[in-house]
Each structure stands twice: as C-alpha cells, then as structure tokens.
Design a binder for these strands. Structure first.
Lengths: 339, 339
DNA sequence: ATCCGATTCGAAAACGTTTTCGTGTTGAAA
DNA sequence: TTTCAACACGAAAACGTTTTCGAATCGGAT
C-alpha cells in the first residue's frame, strides 16, 4: 500500500524546495526546463495528484454543490439529481446529496452542517414540514453568509434567491382545459393539502379552468389528501360518485391509485373515466393503461438549477445582484388513460 | 452579509491567542473558567462554527463517503442511496453521489478525481461497460492507496474488498421453482446479455431450477436482451410462442413490457400467462395487474454497505484485514401477475 | 527571601497547497 | 574588474484548525 505522495515528499526526494516542485508541475517559466522535466517525470512516476482538501482550503472553494431534497425515492427528484449531476460534472463540480425526509429539523441540520466551508452552494426543494412551518431562517442565514442558494419546484416567496419552477397553476389549468375541450362535465380533482405549495397551485389552476369555462366548482369533486392519510379509502369514496367522468390528479401516485380503484369499482379507464396525472414518471409510462400526464422535466429543471448556481458561483463577486426565476415548460403527454 | 468568523478573528477581538480560543471552545481545563466563558459567549454571539475543510485537512478525514452508481433514475439505485444516506447521516457522514452513466470512463474519472483526499471511502456498483471490459485498475489503485471500497449488487470477484450482494442465482432459482411448483411447464426467461453480472447469475439460477426438476432447458424460451436493443420487438417475438405459460423477467422493465405485449397479443395475465419480475420497485407495485416480484431490498443493501464502510473507516487502522461479503435476503412478493 | 508546584496562556508546528517576494548565481556589457 | 539584468530557485505567508510544549505568573511553603 503506497500512500498518496505530496509536494513535500517530492521536494525532499529531488532535493529541491516545495515551491520549485509546485511551480514545475504548473509549468512555470520561472523554473528551468531541466528541473521542470525532472520534477514532472518524478511526479508522474509516483502518480502525484494535488490534494483537493488543501486546495479547497487555500482557494476557499470546494467545487462541490449540495442538493437537498425531501425524498430520493421520488422519481421526479431522482431525475432532478440526474440533471444537476450532469451539469455539475461538466463544470468540474461534485454533488453532495442530502435528504430532508420531509423534516424541517433534518433540513436545518444539513444546511448548518454544510454551510461551514464544506460546499460552495445549495440547490434545494423545501420539505413539507418547512412549508408548513413557514420557517426559513436557516436559508436566510446561509444566504446572508454569502453562499448562493437555488430553489426548485417547492419554493417560497419569502426567500429571495434564484429559483427554477414550473408554472404549476398554468399546467393544471391546461390539463383541466383539455378535459373541458373534450366535453367532460364532471371533472374531479385529487390534490394534496394546501400547504404543499405545488398542490395549492395546481388546485388553483384547476379551479381557474373551470371558472373560465363557466363550470361549477363542486367541492364534492375535490379531494385534498393529507400526507399521513391512507388515501385509498378517500379516493374510493370520491369515486363512489358515479357522475364523475374525468379525474385530474396532482401526482402519479394519486393517478394510478385512482385508476386501480376505478377498476375495482367496475369503471373502465378511459372508457368510463378519463384520468390525467402530474409528473411524467415511471408509473405513468408503464402502468396499463399508461397514463396521460403533465410532464415536468426533472432533468431539465435540475440542469437549469445547477447552471444558475454555478454561474453565480463563478460570477465576478457580487456583480449581478439580480435574482432570477426560471420557468420550465410543461407539456401534456397523451397516453391511454384519456380518450 | 456577514462572512464566517474564524478563530483568528475571535482571538484578535478578545486580545488572546488563537490557541486560547480553540481550547476555550473545546472546554479545555487548561484555560481559566473566566476566559472560557468569555470566549464561548463571544463565539456564540458571532455564530462561530469551525471550518470543515480546515478540519479535514488537519485530521485527514473528510467525513464524506462517495457512492458511484450507474444510473440514478433506476428506482433500485435510488433506494440504495436512501439507505446509504441514512446510515451515513446517523454516523455523521455526508454522501457524495456520482453517476457513471454505465460508462467506464466516467467511473474512472470520478474515482480518480475523488481519491485525492476529497472523501474517505467509496461505495459502488459497477457500470455495464466496466463489467464488459473487465478493467478494474482504477479500483485496485484506490484500494492500494489505503482507501476502503465497498461494492454492492454489481460486483466482481477480481477485486478483493467488502461486498454487499443478493444471491441472484438463488433468488432466480426460487422464482423459477415457484413456477414449477405451481405446475407451469413452459417457463420463459427474459434476461440481459451475460456480461451484466446479475443477469448472468439470474440466468444460471433459472437454468439450475429447470434442470433440478428434470425440465428441458429450451433455448427458444430464453431471451437475452442487449443494452441498446429495442427490446419490445424481441419480446413480442418470444411471446409469439403460444406454448409459454410463465415468464420470469430479470427486471421490472422487462416484466411490465412483457405483460403489455402479452395483452396486445390477446393473452391475459395471469390467466393465460403468469409473470414474475425482479426488483421490487414502483412499476411492479403500481402497474395493473401488479407484478409478482423478487424483492431486492435496496434500502437495506445501501444501509449495510454504508455500515461496512464506516466500520472500516473507524477501525483501529488496518486492524481487521478480513474482507466480508454480506448477502441480503430476497423474498418473493406475490401479487396479481401470477396465479 | 527562596523555591516549587499549580495555573494559565502563547508560540509554533502540522495538514498540503499556491504565490509573492527576495536572493544568489551567472553571463555579458561597460 | 565592476555592474546589472536575466535566470533559477527558496523562504515564508496564507488558508483555519488542533495540539504539544514551553514559559510566565502567582501563591504558598520553607
């Protein structure tokens, strides 16, 4: 086992100074051709690689960014990481992944733990608990220390920073409008409780579309699911309403579960009921019938977020103070669950 | 914006030495009660947190581990990360995620880039290309430098290190045996090409089960899918054989696709054909019919891998040279795709 | 007054870099 | 021979810690 070789060791071995070794390896003209060659050959032989930690300490840059997400088992978040990772890698950055598990405390601990020089910046999506508590002091603190933060998907207006979002309201509006255009009359909504920002926005879009077409907004057709809830029963209850001819669900899970329960209740999808989901993930693609869905391009979102963060990191120091909010386009992917 | 405060600044401000500040904060008895209080109060006021990079340099420990996986959009790998992250966090470690994208080069680059002090150890699953090339020099090199590596799932015998695997062969054997026990005669296999280690092992288990029950191994019932292939047609071709009454697929995707194609060909699952998949992921759970599958507990695998790595990191220096291979149990989860 | 032990603190090294600045040597020009 | 630039290299600081060791001060005991 040969330990990593350092500048000091090379210097000692070749009987020159550390500075000479360093300069030689960076091909400084200050050093004679002879010495440079000698040092470089020796370094190559011993497979010298500069110690990243030492460099980080010196440069005050770690070339590492951290992404904090509520859950990784969510396909959407996995795609976001993928996008972040690729853009980061292209720019010579590494990606530290932290999971908040939808917990406020874990989010805070993670941020505080890493804000001490370990990383250069954050990309994050708020945990449900944080959204519920509306306590963002940990984020403000980090930003005040001069560390850039980019929020995506689950964001808040209370923090000023770069953001990457989709227009949840518009996307929901379009999905609902799609139903309306096809002549559906009783369009149900399966959403989350309102403190989840995206759930709220999607609900708003749904309502706006209905109102826009002078359709009645029927509270009985709107189901808002609590996080801890066993939602199968709630959905079954909703679907016992035989008038419903279309369902807009704010995520994949709700959509596929609705289809499953509809089947159990003897209703065929899409013949008796049409279903549109949200988030174009694995489930929508591979369930049968495959599910028409609002596609939310996670890879693109992550890539954009990483790009914004890195640009800010490499900007000439506080030059552009302007924060931007990028909107990623969504698209309705039509599949078998609608007719 | 207030920048991070350092020991030096505190020392200057309070007109004591850096050492005194450091010791005070660590509550050393060497320092008088008075001074300690004063320093601690000041540090708290200015929200002092030691710089992690400086600590890493000093301690030669980063408290960061890296997990290299081929793909993150794979639900299984996402669950593994989840397991790794949680165990790591419990032990005060952070997790750096690297994606090889199934590419040998990216795997090598990632490892070389991080083996220079950035992290304390690796957890990894081989990329397909690496398995194909059988070139593991980058891994040996890292291990030779004294950096521990734990491999999981896609491992190789050519590297000596800790490993976490499932008994792929046994799991496939059991799945196939399950079919045999139920009286199925024409059991098809949808596998990957042999250089993917798990594909090969699962194929072996399938064959072993058949032979064990004196059933003929019919090459026409075995489909080995190339990575780049458009496999839908191949599966359709396989299923045109009307004798087939059961299918064992080595992953979720093959299983769900087989079901879809069977449906198109007018065959009902499970009435006409039973299907067992591999990897208990989202697809198996939420497709209809839901898919009977060999459950491979990714969270447990990741957790175990992280535990093994951390134990080795914190062992009293080269004490236990013994490498271990842990086998995570699999389990057949029966759902609607089998009768 | 002297000595000794305890108490309290600071200087400095160490981790591995990069970079600035200074210094010594060489050669050629005066 | 002197002078000066060019050349080649080294010392040291800096990044932010921790820790070892030495030193100063003080009180009490002799």
């Amino acid at each position: 086992m040969k330990r990593k070789v350092t500048l000091k060791q090379i210097a000692k071995e070749l009987d020159v100074s550390i500075s000479t070794v360093s300069k030689s390896l960076r091909n400084s003209l200050e050093i004679s051709e002879d010495t440079r060659q000698k040092v470089q050959a020796f370094a190559k032989l011993y497979n010298y690689k500069p110690n990243n930690i030492a460099l980080s300490l010196k440069n005050k840059k770690t070339k590492t960014i951290c992404i904090i997400i509520p859950e990784i088992i969510h396909h959407f978040f996995a795609t976001v990481i993928s996008g972040v990772e690729h853009v980061a890698n292209e720019n010579g950055y590494n990606v530290l992944v932290c999971l908040s598990d939808e917990s406020f405390d874990k989010e805070v601990i993670n941020m505080e733990m890493l804000a001490n020089g370990s990383i250069d910046g954050f990309i994050m999506s708020l945990s449900k608990e944080t959204q519920l508590k509306k306590d963002f002091h940990h984020i403000t603190e980090v930003i005040n220390q001069g560390m850039p933060v980019v929020m995506f998907d689950r964001v808040t207006n209370e923090i000023l920073c770069d953001k990457v979002i989709i227009d949840d309201s518009l996307a929901a509006f379009n999905a609902t409008q799609h139903f309306i255009d096809k002549g559906f009359k009783k369009i149900a909504l399966i959403s989350t409780v309102d403190y989840v920002s995206v759930g709220k926005l999607r609900t708003e879009g749904y309502i706006k579309a209905l109102k826009n077409s002078d359709l009645k907004v029927d509270e009985n057709l709107i189901l808002k699911i609590e996080d801890t809830e066993n939602f199968e029963d709630s959905i079954a209850n909703l679907l016992s309403n035989n008038e419903i001819d279309a369902i807009f669900a704010v995520n994949e899970l709700f959509a596929v579960t609705a289809i499953k329960i509809a089947n159990k209740l003897g209703k065929k999808v899409p013949d008796d009921i049409s279903v549109i989901g949200f988030t174009d993930g694995i489930i929508s693609k591979y369930s049968s019938p495959s599910i028409t869905t609002v596609s939310q391009n996670g890879v693109k979102m992550g890539g954009k977020a990483a790009k914004m963060l890195i640009e800010r990191l490499e900007a000439d120091e506080e030059e552009e103070e302007q924060y931007r909010t990028e909107v990623i386009e969504t698209e309705l992917v039509e599949r078998e669950s609608t007719r």
